[in-house]
């Protein structure tokens, strides 16, 4: 008996999900952030963000196809986090780090918030 473990399966699946997103295939929700629109899959959003998990497990909200985020959320910060959800790569630029962190707090993505904190501390110290 043995088990074959495909070491790149998780990244292959994520790559394919990101290709489905970029081609708008089976995307089922539009996230509005200050009039900027982002198409995505509810399941991926739920898997990565506590806020979206709460929204789409709510029987009254789960059928919503357009979600308006808080006007204080920066679209650029949201774009960085949405790309992270679909690629596992978090782009951290000095100019965006605070808005990414604040958006991660809002979206309840605690591990990303911790990483942003560490990044800010390390850049302060350097």
């Amino acid at each position: 008996d043995s088990c074959i473990q495909f070491t790149r399966h998780a990244s292959d699946v994520l790559l394919n999900l990101n290709r489905l997103r970029s081609r708008d295939i089976l995307t089922d929700v539009t996230i509005l952030v200050n009039r900027q629109q982002f198409r995505a899959h509810k399941t991926v959003l739920m898997a990565c963000s506590g806020l979206f998990y709460s929204i789409f497990t709510d029987s009254l909200k789960c059928n919503m196809n357009v979600i308006n985020l808080d006007p204080k959320v920066d679209p650029e910060g949201f774009a960085v986090l949405l790309d992270f959800m679909y690629t596992s790569r978090l782009t951290l630029k000095e100019s965006l780090i605070v808005s990414v962190m604040n958006t991660a707090i809002y979206l309840q993505m605690d591990h990303v918030v911790d990483t942003c904190h560490r990044f800010i501390k390390s850049s302060d110290s350097s």
Binding site: D1, S2, C3, I4, Q5, D12, L15, N16, R19
Partner: peptide
Amino acid sequence: YEGGNTIKEMGRSIHEIPRKE
């Protein structure tokens, strides 16, 4: 997975969805 050995397969695991049609 219980028992036996685990063989690591490094190649692709699934088909690749094209970027654009």
